[in-house]
Nucleic acid binder design. Structure first.
Lengths: 253, 253
DNA sequence: AAAGCCTTTTCACACAGTGAAAAGCATTGG
DNA sequence: CCAATGCTTTTCACTGTGTGAAAAGGCTTT
């Protein structure tokens, strides 16, 4: 395996993660019946799975409302300490943030989404949430850099998984539009965005290449659009590409 | 269920989490055979489990070395956003840290360990690692506050799980010693420690009660021992207890 | 008090998950 | 350069695990 997709099923294990995903998507604790419905499982099975997850600390039940538990944090901690990209991220992002005054972010692709792995805020006071660990789409903003590197098969899966491709700015986007943009990104090696995922925010992102050529991560810079015109974003590109290359080299300790 | 321990087994799911735990404990990527050995599973089964975990993003394989993946971060993010204690933690810890100048920490018990859920550094430059998500023992430092609240059965499990009860300072501790200390903590409602888990570090911790009386979390304050004598730690106790009560009340939004 | 919905338990069956063993690969050393 | 060792991956037939329907037991709601 190590990269294969022949499916030795493991149904019950798969279902356990379905439950985790359901709980992850909810922003508040869920009742059993609700979890079961969302995960497409019978209440009996769901109860059993939640029982195991609970004993393992991945789920916490407050009376009868379930949500994810502290063991998720312990696992995440291990990931951050072990993963070579994560470990390399902080200093690189810090330098980017320091020299540009903007917010620097590292995303890793996971399935048909991307996850915020690290982030360093620049001088600009545009700080929403502490978004480390947040799942974000692949078809908006920095996500496009990752989408541009996907094999056709997965790209199709993405297209059919996403109902509405239009941006937060309200611009409607067809599949053809998106594909054209991805081609452009592949050609140029970076992507400049504005008002895509967040209105009023613009940024530049570049792919972080792995030794084998695969692209599973992006580095990006972003900030409030009015204060930072596209020209400024473009001027950062060389430095961004240097940072991306540095991160790419970091995979072996 | 919701608090029960009748064991509807789910062997394969349980094993999946055994694998996660094994990977979590290792600070570097592991090979298949190694994971299998540590988890006590056959290579075939281990491979299948890793396959599922990989597809779910909970495990990443770099060539043939496995470690935890970015999906753990996404789950942790959801936990931090959803869990009422975590959400309440930051402001409370900030105030504690600000008024005392020390580091304030919140732990939650998970199984026979505790996990660092939130932490705010005080003025003192005693900052090792970014330890959020770290697993720490229940028999040292703030952990004792949690151990003191455990039902006898679980306490016994803890005692037999921990081989060596002695502190980092080198003081050897018998089971009777520990039990006596736990009784004292139950009586007083807080615990002052020095050189227990980390040499040169001392602190005070208090239990965070839940409405049902259960104690599954601790708030604590800690700093370098020479600069902060026990008397100073004791003077903080009232404020600490107030913080603990505030956190206890926070469980319902 | 009855109706409705939720959680939890029980049970018999089917097939998902299993490990032994074989087949492929890589690495090491003579 | 080939043999030997140790790892990963595949295959396969058996068995016990995981399964959902249905019943039983709790809450709320009206």
């Amino acid at each position: 395996m190590a990269a294969g997709q022949p499916q030795p099923s493991m149904r019950s294990v798969e279902r356990a993660f379905d439950v985790i995903e359901v709980l992850e998507q909810s922003d508040k604790p869920m009742r059993l019946s609700n979890v079961a419905r969302r995960a497409g499982l019978s209440p009996a099975t769901t109860l059993r799975l939640l029982g195991v997850l609970q004993r393992r600390g991945f789920v916490v039940a407050e009376q009868q409302a379930y949500h994810l538990g502290p063991a998720t944090l312990a696992a995440a901690h291990s990931f951050l300490v072990t993963d070579s990209l994560s470990r390399a991220a902080t200093p690189v992002l810090q330098e980017l943030a320091a020299t540009t005054g903007l917010t620097a972010t590292l995303h890793i692709r996971s399935g048909l989404e991307r996850i915020v792995i690290a982030r360093v805020d620049g001088a600009d006071p545009l700080r929403y949430q502490l978004p480390i660990g947040q799942r974000l789409p692949l078809h908006l903003g920095a996500g496009k850099v990752l989408a541009a590197a996907m094999p056709e098969e997965e790209l199709e899966a993405l297209m059919s998984a996403v109902r509405d491709l239009s941006t937060a700015g309200g611009k409607s986007v067809s599949e053809a539009d998106l594909r054209a943009e991805l081609a452009l990104i592949r050609e140029r090696g970076y992507h400049v965005s504005a008002d895509e995922r967040v209105v009023g925010s613009s940024g530049v992102s570049a792919p972080v290449p792995r030794p084998d050529g695969q692209v599973m991560a992006t580095v990006g810079i972003s900030g409030p659009a009015e204060r930072h015109p596209e020209s400024e974003m473009l001027s950062i590109v060389p430095e961004l590409l240097r940072a991306a290359a540095a991160l790419g080299r970091a995979r072996d300790l």
